[in-house]
Computed example of a mutant assay.
Amino acid sequence: MISVKNVLIALGVALTAYLAARGLWWGSVPVPQPLVVVATLGMYLATTWLCIFWEPAAPPTEGDAAAAPTARGPSKLPAVAQGLALACAIIVPSAIAFAVGPDSRTASFATWYLGGIGALMTIVMVRRRPWTAWIGTAILAIASMVWMGAAAALALGLVGSIVWVASAQLLVRSMDRAARDTARLAQLQRAASGWQASQAVRQRERRVQVQEALAVAGPVLTRTVATGGSLSDDERLQARLAEGRLRDEMRGPRLLDEEVRAELERARRRGANVTVLDEGGLEGLDEETLAIIRAQLADALRSASSERLYIRTSPDERVAVTVVGRSPAVGAPSDEDGVDLWREIPHPRAG
């Protein structure tokens, strides 16, 4: 199966093999220690390909903060391969410089390790070992400058190796940032979809309740028009209940369930004037939390005997709903009411 990962692995293997093959192309130039050159090349290829192909035995745990953004990218290089890469950066330059002799240290077959170790450290960087990659690059720079001089090392490939490692680090960081942004976007999209779905359900429920209220109010309105406003006491009660039910559905739908609706109707049937207002503070609550608030509201209404009831949501983070009851005070003028009920329903998430 052809994938981006497989293509990159193939390119890495081909590049390192080409760089190593340059070390064997000395032609008629005498090499004092050819076996050392061959052994060094074998060590380099084995280490490099190990760093390319070796995957960790077990995936990182979810609690590993360092591995969190890498779930979809290259895995972290195992510690053993990391150590071998550093050993390679230490041994290869000195071994090659010793094996080819002082007269050939700047020849093309003897400077292959500038690109070779640079490619190895680039692989280590991509495998998420940045400190190891930079340490290995520093070792390469020091060793090459010692054996061939600073100017020659910089001119023959050291600069390119440093650029490779730096570019790999920037690329890995960009990939991780893109992965985090993608995950964040997906999370926001899920949240938006959930919110939209909940709003659609809430609107549908509200539409159903309003339709039910209108179904009750419709016959009353028809009767009112037909009789010119001359209604019996029972019809007037039904009209008042229908009006109150309709106002409740429009002004405070998040406070309502069947139990609360039943208690509101019971209060109106005994003659109480009830006002329900949702003025914010319940946004973002799930149905389970709203059910707790509604149960406490129904309980407060069940024990209320006030002539006027005011039910309001609260923006306070500690109080979800306030229920206030007012009735004419004993011995007070008829137009002055006293507070005979004060109930604050605590916010469940403040507990």
Rank of each mutant, 00 (worst) to 15 (best):
E212M: 07
W342V: 13
P32R: 14
R128N: 11
Q33N: 10
V29D: 03
T222D: 01
N6W: 14
S306R: 02
A242C: 09
V220Y: 05
P348M: 04
Q199D: 09
G149R: 10
A87I: 03
Y113L: 09
I9Q: 06
A110N: 12
R180C: 11
R261V: 06
K5Q: 10
T313I: 05
S327A: 13
A46R: 14
I52T: 11
P56Y: 08
V38Y: 15
G281Q: 08
A332L: 14
I292K: 14
P102K: 06
G351V: 05
E317F: 00
E279W: 00
D335E: 15
R240P: 03
T227F: 07
A304Y: 04
E243S: 04
I91M: 02
I90K: 00
R266P: 01
R202M: 13
A217R: 05
I90M: 05
L11T: 12
R261A: 08
A20S: 14
W147C: 01
Q203R: 13
Q82I: 00
V260N: 04
V29T: 08
S314M: 09
E243C: 03
L231F: 02
A87V: 05
G23A: 08
A71M: 14
T137S: 07
V324T: 15
L255R: 01
S193Y: 00
G331P: 10
A67F: 04
A298S: 12
T227Q: 12
T224G: 09
D299I: 01
T227K: 10
P93C: 14
P333E: 00
E307C: 02
R236M: 03
T313W: 01
Q203N: 11
A183G: 05
A197Y: 01
N6F: 13
L84K: 04
L255G: 02
A217M: 15
R129S: 12
G136K: 01
L120S: 07
P32L: 14
A215Y: 07
A226I: 10
A192N: 06
T122W: 11
D103W: 08
A213Y: 10
L290S: 11
G23C: 07
I90A: 08
A66F: 15
T182H: 13
P130M: 02
S75G: 12
I293V: 15
P32Y: 11
P253V: 02
A213K: 05
I91P: 00
V126A: 08
L154P: 02
R22I: 03
W195V: 12
E283H: 15
P102C: 04
G280F: 14
V163Y: 07
S94K: 08
E283F: 14
S104E: 06
A107P: 01
G229Q: 04
I91Q: 00
A178R: 13
D234L: 00
S144W: 02
S174L: 15
V208R: 13
A200K: 10
E317H: 07
R326G: 01
G73A: 12
S193W: 00
W54C: 04
Y113V: 09
A81S: 12
S28E: 13
A166M: 05
P69S: 11
A350E: 12
L24S: 12
